[in-house]
Design a protein around this nucleic acid. Structure first.
Lengths: 334, 334
DNA sequence: CTGAAAGCGCTTACAG
DNA sequence: CTGAAAGCGCTTACAG
């Protein structure tokens, strides 16, 4: 590293004490306009950049937070990162993007190590890292600020940015019911995701509200992946009477259903309607384009970072979902 | 933050000087086995984690590098991150995942600010951040180590992990030629990506090698996106004689071609063969599954990090590509 | 093999 | 509004 200027050199050239430079850098009060201007001019001319390590060591804050994630979907991770990153950088924080293994017995200790080593000021948890009681407890014990994105368990506790999964799934189901479908298959996602159960609940509520009996045989377990969606679809399509619509718990599985339909020469949406959940990049890349529930992942992450870093925002926020009606859903066949 | 133990407390309890604790932490020579064991035991018991900020400030290295990216594909970003992250953490480095705006006039100064503030030991550049001469020059001037993933310009300079895009595109084209196709359309990617031109070159070389005249009308510009792939396909399908195969410069565009074919009721691969490039997550989620050239993104990033951090590895490495023949390519119609 | 001193580049109280 | 002192938690030479 070439020799960078330090706060002392800046102060010498500006003709003030280095403490005054520090004040200017931190936008503190009690600096005369003229002094401030002079210091800023020198800072710019020397291209001075304060050492993050020194600030962290000397100060009581590191201006550094981490986003913890453990999600197999590139789409999801990318958008969560982008949203959180944006709000953090707007507020002058650095965001460490930290993949973790939420299944590991060392998870809590690994996260604590990161917190200590990096002097983190807080952490942002994304699903399914949101659902680990031992982690939440330890964070609480330490008094370290944290915020959760779309948490399932302990919903009311602490800071969180969410959508209403139950209502969203209800709307998808009602869209199908509105098209005349009565035998609607449902493919659940991973057991460990609380959203899996909430979406199932929304599906059931919609059926009940329209006087359609719940049929256990029409619910099949998937694993949030394309492959598992296809397998689940094949099971559902063997049921008699055959379902005229399938609602998959996420877009990857819905794409799997669509491929299975193509394979069996089942016309979509003529003979089978398909709906997904997420509005991921996939939804518009398959054919026909997928009807799906849009989940504002990037906005959720942005809001989460905001909740944690600007205290005046409050504790919880619920964002809007939106049904994207495309071409995989249509009137039920007679 | 609860009061964490420091190196001094560890040393007091272990009954040695704090310098000795530092030696143990850094795995230095000249510590008796017994002393080492005793210190390690106290470190573990207190759950001591050295302050990264203090190490960075006092030492001449930060054990911190950054991955710079500016790519619209979640798939690409996710895998680049994963590969680089893995090698860095294996080697005891922290990796900062840093999105940048490669079009911004402030790019160089923003990157230099990051380097200074974080005391970076090096940077990993992914496309298209690899192609900015001003950035490379400034890094060279500073003598800061950097490595490039799949660089286009100045290929031979410095450290780099690449694949042979020309050869890979040639193989895709030869696969199509081998199936009897003669009128093969080609959809280029973004102009700013050097790989765009290399893949075009590979396409031309394959044609030439098999005595097929190059037809400018069969090459259309795309923008690496699903939508642009569909538009390009529509243009190509108006050509007479109509091409019997289309090779798209990436999978997103290939998915667009596939959707356009579905829309026009063109049977794939019966009437039209389609090949992509990347083997992204998309390739297996569309129907029929896409024939494509696998680019080992994650391995490239892993190798790049390795080149930079383990000096003995050498300067450059070229990884293998692999043609994934799936279901969108078949014999040319008569 | 082990230790005492100096210093990395800042912020935090404390003065004036 | 401005400054001098102390210290954050480590590593780097330098001794012995």
């Amino acid at each position: 590293m070439s020799s960078r200027p330090t706060i002392k050199e800046v102060s010498k050239i500006a003709g003030v004490s280095f403490k005054t430079v520090s004040r200017v850098l931190n936008n503190e009060k009690h600096v005369s306009e003229e002094t401030r201007r002079r210091v800023e001019e020198v800072v710019a001319r020397l291209n001075f950049r304060p050492s993050h390590a020194a600030r962290t060591l000397a100060g009581r804050r590191s201006f550094q937070v981490a986003l913890l994630y453990d999600n197999p979907s590139p789409y999801y991770v990318y958008h969560v990162q982008t949203g959180a990153q944006q709000r953090c950088s707007e507020l002058g924080y650095r965001l460490l993007l930290q993949p973790v293994d939420s299944q590991s017995p060392d998870l809590v200790s690994n996260v604590m190590a990161l917190i200590d080593e990096a002097h983190l000021d807080g952490v942002i948890l994304s699903p399914p890292v949101t659902e680990i009681p031992a982690l939440l407890d330890e964070l609480d014990r330490r008094g370290l600020p944290y915020v959760r994105i779309a948490p399932g368990a302990r919903k009311e506790a602490g800071m969180a940015a969410t959508i209403d999964d139950v209502a969203a799934a209800r709307e998808v189901t009602e869209h199908l019911i509105g098209l005349g479908h009565r035998a609607i298959g449902f493919i659940r996602g991973l057991d460990s995701h609380v959203s899996t159960w909430e979406r199932l609940q929304g599906y059931r509520e919609a059926l009940a509200a329209h006087g359609i009996a719940f049929d256990e045989d029409l619910v099949v377990a998937g694993e949030n992946s394309f492959t598992s969606g296809g397998e689940a679809a094949r099971k559902l399509l063997e049921r008699r009477p055959r379902p005229t619509a399938i609602f998959a718990g996420n877009d990857d599985m819905a794409a799997g259903v669509l491929a299975a339909a193509h394979e069996s020469d089942i016309d979509v949406p003529g003979q089978l309607s398909i709906a997904g959940f997420d509005d991921s990049d996939l939804a518009k890349a398959v054919w026909p384009p997928l009807t799906t529930m849009r989940q504002p992942v990037r906005e959720l992450a942005y809001a989460a970072a905001d909740l944690m870093l600007s205290p005046e925002t409050g504790q919880q926020v619920t964002l809007e979902h939106k049904l994207m009606v495309r071409a995989t859903t249509g009137p039920a066949p007679r």
